[in-house]
Amino acid sequence: MESLAKVIGVIHISAAIALSNGIFTTFGQSKVACQAIESIARQPEAANDIRSAMFVGLAMCETSGIYGLLIAIIMLFANPLLEKLISLIG
């Protein structure tokens, strides 16, 4: 029982680490939005083009954050290495 608790703890910590890439994702997205707002303020007539380009850029930046989320979910609910981890720690 104790080894299972240890395994669950390790899995949760690793999921949290996987999610922590959200820091950098958010930072990158903020830079994209910041530049887009700046260029819209400079050239308001090009606002529509800049907005659509901004959305595509934001989506591209978001991909790494989404991968982190998926890795965290796979670790928590469908861990392929669970047996190995239990035998290693227990």
């Binding site: 989404i66 991968y67 979910i73």
Partner: peptide
């Protein structure tokens, strides 16, 4: 893969 994971992850995060 990236196209499907992007949509799936976003929808799943809302569900979660």
């Amino acid at each position: 893969v990236s196209l499907s994971f992007r949509l799936f992850g976003n929808m799943l995060s809302g569900t979660i």
